[in-house]
Design a protein around this nucleic acid. Structure first.
Lengths: 337, 337
DNA sequence: GAGGATCTTGTTATCGCTAACAATGGCGGG
DNA sequence: CCCGCCATTGTTAGCGATAACAAGATCCTC
């Protein structure tokens, strides 16, 4: 016997050892009330002795439930998505769900659709899609109904359940903060135009300027990278009238700071800068960056709660949760001149 | 019929529609050679018409193979682990494996052991553990033999398969580079002492100093954070004899740069700095940071290859792959004085 | 103390698939 | 023309769990 490659023990093995039927073992495993205490202990002992662990595949087959949640995210080290992913795994693990990750190289329709397909193949109980761009949302159109779905930072026009960070509010707070410091107006370096996050940050920025009756300077387009922030900064640094800039994320702000530094424009004495995300390093930029902090863990918790609600009760209507970000004040903002 | 909640189609449904037995459908699905072309097409058509997708649980149950790979990583936005995770998912997806992630809050023994347990419960075909500290390796001791396992940046003394970045070589290159620029010696800010990565970087630093016959200054302890780099920098900035510093990672280096900037010590004119990791932002630090770049995608590819080899042939002996990092020269290094 | 409710346990069927074997029909060789 | 081989397809038996039902044992009530 010992010489053989022993297959891992099944429920019947436990049953035999404990002197009960396999069904009783199943009952013990699932905490059914009607099992005598003594029997329960015998079964538990047998389980421990054999090192038995239930076969999820068999259980999934008969119950039709997989206890698996799929997450689709962009394969990137962008701070926001990466944090979200980690927070989600944590929250799901606590709820007894396993998390399967489908990471995509780009957020185009095909990539997202492919990742979703792979998850459906696995019969996930629910799906979380971090879908901050239109093409991602589009890819979800064709999804079979009935699969619980939560999107993060997706399009609020869509009908499915959604968790978003209130980007516009964050952007408005950032812009107001700069105006309150005495700046006549605030320039904005935006994220890639197809990202909703970027669009809402623009919207919040515009709203704050209009509320204050400030002149609206031309929008500076960029992507999320430090490189694009640097490029934008090299241009802005030549324009003396630019005294306050709101960057769409902290990495851009970093590039911006360097461009200003190279051109001899001091931050915050000559130019004030505010970022978005509050990456852990933001406090150590030169100077420390005032920025907007969204709570990724709050997003993840809310998202998972909504998803579990849908899984438990498929009738749950689409829902919407908005997480408010907070402004973190550091040294990169000062009055003009 | 349409009024009923229709359960998703099974193989027999496809078989009925195509006018064959379910076994023939199975053969088509698994690309068995002995199926008439015409039959194959009929089955394919039926599959498409019903939108049939095979039930992984049923397949896993009968074959005993799960096509699932588990990854255990720290739940953090540390750049290294996050990049590795993304790279792994990508590589595994290409090989037709799903990836289940178990993220842990801390890298202590219990957390790791728990995450491993959860994966074993899921009957993963193989396990990748990013285990850069001793406690993580320890947690793997008790693992049942026979589960394919690859650790990343783990302890080379252990007997299991391992992929590591050659931290020592990277550290030596960084230190040599500073010495070659004319510095009499190089100070080092280290990572947390229980991380192997940190230990090897210290080792490489020491080796380079000794090779060159340079004096070995006291080691400055820190963790991976920008904050700890900043603290270390505030101390080093007061010491005029410090002209070259090798930081254990880029975030520390960022904190260092800010501390030097605050104390009026210019980089690179007064002090040269080299980091480790090459985070995307490193090129936009003030000044742009010379650093060491490990290839995370190479690590992930190598790790997955080794894992798949073990999965396919359980007899595969433990193996070891070392990935060499490269020095990326930017503007943070100059001759002294 | 009889009868029914309740607790406890066991028996059987079933989930959807693959593996093993059986059955059929066409083909070529002797 | 018979036999055996191969290509093709079907039949049957599980994989390891849960669900549904059945059946003793125990308990309570009147």
């Amino acid at each position: 016997m010992d010489g053989q490659a022993t297959r891992s023990p099944a429920m019947t093995d436990v049953a035999r050892l404990a002197g009960v039927s396999h069904q009783t073992v199943s009952r013990v495993l699932n905490d059914h009330p009607n099992v005598r205490e003594q029997t329960r202990l015998r079964v538990r002992a047998a389980i421990a002795e054999l090192g038995y662990r239930p076969n999820r595949a068999a259980r999934a087959l008969v119950t039709g439930r997989s206890q698996l949640i799929g997450i689709v995210a962009q394969n990137s080290t962008l701070y926001g998505p990466a944090s979200l992913l980690a927070a989600f795994e944590q929250a799901a693990a606590e709820a007894g769900f396993a998390v399967s990750v489908g990471s995509v190289g780009r957020l185009d329709r095909e990539s997202i659709a492919g990742a979703v397909e792979r998850h459906l193949d696995q019969r996930v109980a629910g799906l979380v899609v971090i879908a901050p761009v239109k093409s991602a949302d589009d890819a979800l159109e064709g999804m079979p109904a009935g699969v619980p779905l939560v999107t993060i930072d997706g399009d609020p026009e869509r009908s499915h359940t959604l968790v978003t960070v209130d980007q516009a509010a964050g952007a408005r707070a950032a812009t107001r903060h700069l105006l309150a410091a005495g700046h006549r107006t605030v320039w904005h370096i935006s994220g890639p135009p197809d990202w909703y996050d970027a669009a809402w940050r623009i919207e919040g920025w515009l709203a704050a300027l209009r509320e204050a009756g400030a002149e609206v300077p031309p929008l500076v387009n960029a992507d999320w990278s430090a490189a694009s922030g640097y490029d934008a900064g090299r241009m802005l640094a030549r324009m003396p009238e630019v005294t306050a800039v709101f960057a769409a994320n902290d990495h851009q702000a970093l590039g911006l700071l360097r461009a200003f530094s190279e051109h001899g424009r001091r931050v915050p004495q000559d130019v004030s800068v505010v970022g978005f995300d509050d990456v852990p390093e933001a406090a150590f930029f030169i100077p420390p960056l005032t920025t907007v902090r969204p709570s990724f863990s709050a997003v993840a918790r809310a998202g998972l709660d909504l998803l579990l609600a849908q899984i438990t009760d498929p009738g749950t209507p689409p829902n919407r949760v908005v997480i408010a970000p907070v402004l973190v004040e550091r040294a990169s903002v000062a009055p003009p001149g």
